[in-house]
């Protein structure tokens, strides 16, 4: 028996759809390939970045679980200087591309550990891939909110590989709140709020099919700063707005047009063409790589 309501919806949607033609496939394909070329260029830059990372051995990949403990030493001039001490990182992955993933995880882990360590001394956190992936490129990105490090990573090649961040240990460990606001499908929303000086919600939306992109930071003055987290050159209109915030090789303390202060100079990052770093800070402090702030790699237009 036909369902009149469903029939109505289908007919209505089809009629509306029939009033607008999609562009030719060739035009859409060209647009996609143009992005692919830009992304490939970015991957080259990221590869150079990974190669420059200090060694951090992660064992136990792949196959659903593993852990590694590593000593972090000084890391050769990274802005996220770890100093001395140890960080424990547990990696759980279902990846099927161990060597490639491991290389990127190593970079992620190093940055995350560095940030965690800078923020809280040693720290433990976990993350895991959402599903098996033939190939995955992860860009390490560490940021600190409430003295908590988190890692953003990006699945490349369109596979549903992006990370789910599990912060099981963190809510109890930090003075503010950091909560997983729900995993819907393969999306994870994280929200962190900082006590004092207003709330600084910060969202990241790892999307399994694209680079991490959406997000915003609301500074205590109530201004929302659109904030791509990191990834290959971002195509999104809202991300392009970050141009007002990002500046390659900007001086520490620079305040952009939106009032976001760059907490640290970003001169270390000019070796990574195609990327810039946002170091936003709201506390008024300025310590390169060591104080509260938010550090992100973003595409430099």
């Amino acid at each position: 028996m036909t369902d009149p309501l469903v029939t109505l919806m289908r007919d209505g949607a089809r009629e509306i759809a029939s009033h607008g033609a999609m562009p030719p496939a060739a035009a859409v394909f060209r647009e996609g390939r143009r992005r692919h070329r830009r992304r490939s260029a970015a991957l080259g830059a990221a590869g150079a970045f990974a190669a420059a990372a200090t060694a951090f051995v992660i064992t136990g990949l792949p196959g659903g679980g593993g852990s590694a403990n590593g000593q972090l030493g000084t890391d050769g001039g990274s802005t996220l200087s770890a100093g001395s001490g140890a960080a424990t990182i547990t990696v759980v992955t279902a990846s099927t591309a161990p060597s490639y993933v491991a290389e990127r995880l190593r970079e992620c882990a190093r940055l995350a550990a560095a940030a965690a360590q800078a923020a809280r001394g040693s720290h433990e956190f976990r993350y895991q891939t959402s599903s098996a992936a033939a190939t995955v490129t992860m860009y390490g990105c560490a940021s600190r909110q409430d003295g908590v490090a988190h890692v953003s990573a990006v699945g490349e090649h369109g596979r549903p590989v992006l990370l789910h961040f599990t912060y099981a240990d963190l809510p109890q460990a930090v003075p503010g709140s950091l909560r997983d606001t729900g995993i819907a499908g393969s999306q994870t929303w994280l929200e962190a709020s900082r006590p004092g000086a207003g709330t600084v919600p910060c969202w990241g939306q790892p999307d399994p099919f694209q680079h991490v992109c959406a997000g915003s930071i609301v500074t205590p003055d109530g201004v929302e700063h659109l904030d791509p987290v990191l990834g290959p050159p971002c195509e999104e209109p809202r991300c392009s707005l970050i141009g007002g915030v990002v500046a390659t090789n900007a001086k520490a303390g620079t305040v952009d047009a939106r009032g976001v202060r760059l907490a640290a100079a970003v001169e270390h990052y000019d070796q990574f063409p195609g990327y810039a770093v946002v170091v936003a800070q709201w506390t008024g402090k300025h310590v390169t790589g060591g104080e509260f702030g938010d550090i992100r790699f973003v595409p430099a237009d």
Binding site: A13, R14, I16, A17, G20, V28, G32, H36, H157, G158
Partner: peptide, 29 residues
């Protein structure tokens, strides 16, 4: 496209979403 029309409530929005999705697919075709 018809499904996206209902999902967005707007033909142009539906086309936008779909074109964007296809462009992303093309980028990693």
């Amino acid at each position: 496209l018809p499904a996206l029309v209902l999902a967005t409530g707007d033909l142009q929005d539906a086309q936008d979403c779909l074109q964007e999705a296809f462009a992303r697919a093309a980028a990693r075709w």
